[in-house]
Amino acid sequence: MNKKLTGFLLALGLVLSPVAGHTQQKDTASADSGKGLDRMSKELDLSADQRSKVEAILETEKSKVEAIFNEERQKLQAVQQGTRASLEGVLTPEQMSKLDQKMRENAKNAPKKK
């Protein structure tokens, strides 16, 4: 049973990690996209007009991608809430407390994405 619980915790941790990771990466992504546009401008020798049009295209794409991530994040959160509710129906309050503690430890020890 302990191995099953550990496996479940690891799987749950993997599900939770991408949601948290995406939020932390948003600020870094903004800075990187500016550098990427600068590099693209230089490498492709874009005119000022082309650069502004490319920037607008990339901003539109960024908005669309962000909307998809937000939608998926909401779906994941709904699944996680359902899982938690189901677990609360099976586990004792002490077991839920231990599970919560393990999940916090797993999240804290999870490798950070670059």
Rank of each mutant, 00 (worst) to 15 (best):
Q101T: 03
A85T: 15
E94Q: 15
K108L: 15
Q80D: 13
L76P: 01
K53T: 05
T23D: 14
G7E: 09
A67V: 00
L58D: 02
V90T: 14
Q50T: 10
I57G: 11
K75R: 10
A11N: 06
L12F: 12
K113E: 13
A11M: 06
V65H: 05
K113I: 12
E43S: 11
L87P: 05
S33L: 04
L10F: 13
R104G: 06
P111K: 11
M96E: 13
T83L: 10
S30A: 06
L99P: 13
L91P: 03
S30T: 03
D38Q: 09
V65W: 03
Q95M: 12
F8W: 00
S97E: 01
R73F: 05
A20S: 10
L44K: 12
S33K: 01
L16Y: 08
L10D: 12
G34Q: 09
K64P: 04
Q77L: 15
M40R: 05
G34H: 10
A20D: 06
V90R: 12
A85S: 13
S97L: 12
Q101W: 07
V19A: 08
V79F: 12
T23W: 15
E59T: 02
A11E: 08
G21V: 13
H22W: 09
N109T: 15
S63K: 03
Q77Y: 04
